[in-house]
């Protein structure tokens, strides 16, 4: 499990971690919309850290902390949506 953190007034945010994708050069950052590199099966999953809620605690989760385990990473549109 990730490290617990104190809940402050700001909404905690995470983001990508590890090596930055090598196809993004500083010049490309001038354009707002960048093409994200496509996820490929058989290739490494991009690492990230993200704040999370788990069983009464707020924790920081890092994908690479789960090395050695099978991970099902699920995205969904939003809390209190219906499906």
């Amino acid at each position: 499990m990730g490290e617990e953190f104190e809940a402050g007034c700001a909404r905690p945010t995470g983001g990508p971690g590890g090596e930055s994708p090598n196809n993004v050069s500083p010049k490309n950052n001038e354009t707002k919309k960048e093409e994200a590199p496509m996820i490929m099966v058989g290739k490494k999953a991009p690492d990230f850290t993200a704040p999370a809620y788990q069983k009464g605690k707020f924790i920081n989760v890092k994908l690479s902390d789960y090395l050695g385990k099978w991970v099902a990473l699920c995205f969904y549109p939003g809390d209190f949506t219906f499906v």
């Binding site: 996820i39 490929m40 099966v41 490494k44 999953a45 789960y66 990473l73 699920c74 995205f75 549109p77």
Partner: peptide, 22 residues
């Protein structure tokens, strides 16, 4: 980006951190 939400993506990642399926 247009709707401002994440779609239903599901990734299976193996113990080496490799994406096996999505």
């Amino acid at each position: 980006d247009d709707a401002g939400v994440e779609t239903r993506g599901r990734f299976i990642i193996d113990p080496d951190g490799v994406v096996q399926g999505y």
